[in-house]
Design a binder for these strands. Sequence first.
DNA 1: ACTTTGGATAATTTTTCCTTATGGCAGATT
DNA 2: AATCTGCCATAAGGAAAAATTATCCAAAGT
Lengths: 312, 312
Amino acid sequence: MADFTLKQLRYFEALARHEHFGRAASACAISQPALSMQIRDLEETLGAVLFERGARQVRLTMFGEEFADRARGVLRSVDEMGDLARASQGRLMGRLRLGVIPTIAPYLLPTLIGELGRNHEGLDIRVRETLTPKLIAELEEGRLDTAIVALPVGEPALEEVPLFEEDFLLVRPLADAGKPVPEAEGLRGMRLLLLEEGHCFRDQALSFCNLTPALPRDGLDGSSLSTLVQMVGAGIGVTLIPEMAVAVETRSAAVSVTGFDAPRPTRTVGMVWRRTSPLASQINEVSEAVRRAAHTLRADHATLLEKAARTS
Amino acid sequence: MADFTLKQLRYFEALARHEHFGRAASACAISQPALSMQIRDLEETLGAVLFERGARQVRLTMFGEEFADRARGVLRSVDEMGDLARASQGRLMGRLRLGVIPTIAPYLLPTLIGELGRNHEGLDIRVRETLTPKLIAELEEGRLDTAIVALPVGEPALEEVPLFEEDFLLVRPLADAGKPVPEAEGLRGMRLLLLEEGHCFRDQALSFCNLTPALPRDGLDGSSLSTLVQMVGAGIGVTLIPEMAVAVETRSAAVSVTGFDAPRPTRTVGMVWRRTSPLASQINEVSEAVRRAAHTLRADHATLLEKAARTS
DNA sequence: ACTTTGGATAATTTTTCCTTATGGCAGATT
DNA sequence: AATCTGCCATAAGGAAAAATTATCCAAAGT
């Protein structure tokens, strides 16, 4: 594959513009023979004459002009590629494939997207919402850049960093609002509604109650926190939801939300990504945005609780 | 201007496709370290990471993919430029700027264009019709590629080759048809209509009659052969026209056309171009086409004369 | 004829690029 | 746990490419 070089193309373009070897050469900051040779080589590899060397004139041939047109196009593209590289430096931009588990996504994302979109014009976030194992797999396959999950994950190939901790709160029918807060063990006697198998949140809740996840349970599983809260509102039982979900899920349901006394159940939400990912710094920026978003949500939650307290 | 090379772009593209240094390297017919180094250099000059090197995986980064898209575009363009060079080899194609003098253009061009256009798809002929001195000047300025003129031209910077010889024929009013053909000197006594100054054909005709071109003449000049023939038809005088013009110019005029006895006046039509022009071989092809066209025209002329002879 | 201009050529050095050999890390294997 | 293996990075040496300076040569201008 006998091919010319970009350098030759640049020299060629200069000569085409200046129509003078000496001037073109100094425009390229090289000596005149160097340019002569490169042009000669270029013509040789092309098998065609680009310039007509007159006694006192250098002019493009018919073919040379056609060639020059395209050369200019190529050089422009190449320069743009350089710009692109420069532009994508440091700054968070381009496509970012973000995985989020279902017990976080609906509550965090609106705020997070707002947060990121505001400061990072040209950032294209693609969200994948699914269960932790799938997220991990896709991450390791390189189909995701980072994911927000409950820690720990414990995959050696993945780096993980905690973002925030959040309590699990007890959701009861309004009728139970005044009753004392049960201990962890006490929940076992109640009809505890949980998410379907596979959700890490389910496992965490069960483990808080010292229940074996494998234990077969009567059909009390819901496919989303929203469903669970509605079921609670209908008096079917009680459930746990993460702090972050309170504002959204209890807005339109007749339920009572209470925190536990110590030892309070919590989960650590964190960010994971491939150790080998060069996006580390950019993912760091996302982490910060998530922390800010979580903080905002927590503040909202606090005012909500306050209001609820005043109302009751 | 720290810039990458086409070679790097090709290596990069291979690696992007294979996602494996070893295989990409052998696809490029180089060693693996060579490819590693070129990729590293490329990333360095870009100031951005293109690939995510996993333990057992090589994948494009976000930026890498964007870069790869453009790289493919550039490589495609570059390959096309190579094709272009190959395609423009030997074969006559592209733009050809052809100058022709006015006493040839209208008669030769229709046939010539047909001749060339038939065999050379993609040939773009641009015709410039003007007097010889202008053609020569434009040729030397590089604004024309070649020209068809009467030889000799005698410019040292120009190459010239004869195409064909053609007689000058006497055009007289029909009334004079039977009269004997005058000698060259005899024309001096007649009202000889000629083209305006500047036309080489005028000078050649005058020289045939041994008249000094500078001699002031009464307003008997026409701006085209067509005009002259019309004037002859109107009985104003006689004129000379080149053989090639007969078929066209005498079709709709009541005139008689006669050849001279020896010494017959002739002119040599030829082709000229810059010695430095790389189009030599292509111009040669044009020359051949002109010869063929001239031959065709001469044949037409012969049948015309025959017909005229039968009619009279 | 002589000088000047401007590109080509020659000889040499510098830079770039490739090769082979080797190091090292992370999965895979036993 | 220890070893193996695949795979990329690094190192060192040599070949190729490209730059430089110094001429050379042809054609234009004087």
